[in-house]
Nucleic acid binder design. Structure first.
Lengths: 187, 187
DNA sequence: ACCTGAACACCGTTCAAGT
DNA sequence: ACCTGAACACCGTTCAAGT
């Protein structure tokens, strides 16, 4: 009969899947779980902390690939991060806030740092690659998911933008930069 | 006695400067302007539109530099964008939402596309550079400004992060990528 | 051109108490 | 370990009307 912390996160995902971030209120979440709003505060001290836990949950499956060259592994981590975000509507915005609040991990960032270092990049360049990749992915996916929701609600027509290729082009530049720095350091 | 649209935006900036985005409510804005909350709806159809206008206002001064090599001009546009954001507390988050909503221009993005093309990059690479630069700048500045506010409110101690160098490292990778693509196309 | 009065339908969060 | 009752102090927005 009683709800666990995981139940709360699952109900939050369901609200995002069927509605939107605007509908993800503590009151609505409580109603869907069959409890009063204040019951949620037994699980989380506040909404911000709940959203940070959700952000970690959403990106939990993003792991480094074991095969391919260093640039290919950086690229595949970025693609995996983007896929994880696209899987849950409005999740990019949630991740952005969570990373900013300091209440979530930034484990995907660390994953990419590790991949880049293992590929032979020096520490500073590896940090730069991971930062650029994560911000590109989160930021562009916020734009895409927001458009998707606006179209779903009929408040706007199609944007005419091709987010997949915008992402691919941005990623190409970052990977080219990583490759250039690798070339420099192995010279 | 009566307020213009520009007065509303100026009052919004003042709230950000003295308080935070959380305090930037339509009700507080109205109080500061000496009117009732609903008076603001004469100037803007809703809060989202007001924030989009504010976002454009904040980035209005970011213009391409006329001197230096192509990589230097890309770098200086990125630095100018970051400076404009850092000048207004919590503005990066506002710009992120505004770009996503489609209610603001994305003129800074276009500025960087132009700078990159004029530097000899092909259209696709120029788009990739501009996208990567803008998302890096907005995303990292969201994190920095959020930390600044949390420290200001005493809810957190110092993060120990050096956002200036995180930004510099990310930007270095993107500029190296731009340079690499230039080299390829002029070969 | 710009503002008010009055209202609607919401929010997140707290506190003491219950099982 | 998990939830309720009751309340506090807010939000954005609408509509008709006023000057």
């Amino acid at each position: 009969m009683s709800n666990s912390r995981a139940d709360v996160l699952a109900a939050a995902r369901a609200i995002l899947a069927e509605h939107s971030l605007a509908d993800l209120t503590m009151r609505r979440l409580a109603t869907d779980l069959g409890v009063r709003p204040n019951a949620l505060y037994w699980h989380f001290p506040n909404k911000q902390t709940m959203l940070a836990a959700l952000a970690d949950d959403i990106l939990a499956g993003v792991e480094p690939s074991r095969k391919g060259s260093a640039p290919e592994r950086i690229r595949s981590a970025a693609v995996a991060m983007r896929a994880a975000l696209l899987d849950v509507p409005d999740s990019a915005e949630i991740v952005s806030s969570a990373w900013a609040s300091g209440l979530s991990t930034r484990s995907t960032l660390e994953t990419i740092v590790t991949v880049a270092r293992d590929g032979g990049l020096d520490a500073q360049t590896a940090d730069g690659v991971a930062t650029a990749v994560c911000q590109l992915t989160i930021g562009l996916t916020i734009e895409e998911q927001t458009r998707t929701q606006m179209e779903r609600l009929g408040v706007t027509g199609p944007s005419g933008r091709d987010f997949d290729s915008e992402f691919a082009r941005g990623l190409d530049v970052i990977v080219a930069g990583a490759r250039a720095q690798t070339a420099v350091s192995t010279d």
